[in-house]
Write a protein that binds this DNA or RNA. Structure first.
Lengths: 215, 215
DNA sequence: GAGAGGTGTAGGATCTTCCTACAAGGCGTC
DNA sequence: GACGCCTTGTAGGAAGATCCTACACCTCTC
């Protein structure tokens, strides 16, 4: 293996505490993400940025004291190697995206996008790469997600459905008449096929695209 | 034991997909929460509420098609036993809280409150109880959280700090010269004392109130 | 001074996660 | 049509996490 992937030093600026908490909780489940700071305002961010020395700054577009773009530009002045991910209010148009990229922002994710988009983008830009493309999805992605279900085998679907209904592994094993080990194998394969890492992702996926209830 | 606590049937209405995902992810980690529906608009919510038959509706105050209060009132007309938790934009004043409670809403949590407040409130109202008090905290709560650290014993603090720095259990055990089992015991006690259930909560707590870095 | 409660330490049961294995069948290509 | 590769159903093992229990000390309180 080439590079021993270092931890991602993350700084998050988001005005609303509830969502900041919730996003951070999610992000901190990834054990290669190291939180080095957080703020609810732009001024605060700029003030603490140097000391925190993050690798990636995730910042909201509309902060109460300033707009994220301005803050981002200041931040880039302070530390030019910083990767910035802007969280936009709405889907950004190509024109606006170009402005953002010109300003040195590495990626833009809108509040209408899925959490997984944010995560993927975050990992993508961690090494300084620019990530475009996130704005041009929405529908195709969604149906793609739904279609991913078709890639599961019969047993895998059964297990996915039972798991989404919160039936525990032991019970699933009993119901299907196989060993727990086997059920775990199915679960692992489902996760691998769908690219999930944790239960809530699978549950959410099943609820959304396959109605959760066993048909 | 008296009542076998049934699963909490949750419906979440929140306009922004990113935050909805993120909140749901968090909520679905609790294995007694069953997601029965979600929407990004009020109209959609009302339309699907009857079929979903949730026990608790968590709904945002400012939806793009209507305000949450209006939707909540309609929802209560449809199913009077529904418990509604309103997510307000900002800290609500006692006056506004009274209006909400009059309308039959069981609790209000603002977007400036901590995620844990939402969770606690959710569990509180699940049985139809009204939950007031959430609006009257902020500062005292925060310093209370910080003070909770003082309740930890010496070993517990060491372990908390190491865990927050993402040192793995095995390494912590080596560093302290005790067995992994012992480190797990410390971790369990820390969680019990601080009321946490998962790593990210502890990490966030340490980063926020104790700087994460070992002093 | 006896019991209550906190602290440092650890064991066992059970569950998860991750990795590996392997037989049976399908599909592809030469 | 035979050989090889991929998928599917099945499961085992190792390592780690969670939950519960234990137990020797120490200190505080009645």
């Amino acid at each position: 293996m080439a590079v021993a992937a270092r931890k991602l030093r993350l700084y998050l600026t988001l005005g609303q505490r509830l969502f900041r908490d919730s996003l951070l909780f999610h992000l901190l489940l990834q054990d290669d993400i190291d939180l080095v700071g957080e703020s609810d305002s732009g001024a605060d961010t700029l003030q603490r940025l140097a000391a925190a020395a993050p690798g990636v700054l995730v910042i909201e577009e509309n902060l109460r004291d300033n707009d994220g773009l301005t803050i981002a530009e200041h931040a880039l002045n302070l530390s030019p190697t910083l990767s910035i991910l802007l969280i936009a209010e709405t889907q950004v148009s190509p024109g606006r995206l170009a402005i953002y990229l010109d300003a040195g922002i590495k990626a833009v994710v809108s509040k209408q996008q899925a959490m997984q988009d944010l995560l993927k983008t975050l990992y993508y830009i961690r090494n300084g790469q620019v990530y475009v493309g996130s704005w041009q999805r929405t529908d195709s992605e969604e149906s793609g997600a739904a279609r991913a279900f078709d890639g599961l085998s019969g047993r895998e679907r059964e297990v996915a459905q039972l798991i989404a209904s919160r039936v525990c592994i032991k019970e699933i094993a009993d119901q299907l008449g196989v060993s727990c080990k086997t059920v775990h194998s199915y679960k692992d394969r489902i996760f691998a096929k769908l690219g999930f890492e944790r239960m809530p992702e699978l549950i959410l996926f099943m609820k959304r695209y396959h109605n959760g209830a066993v048909p």
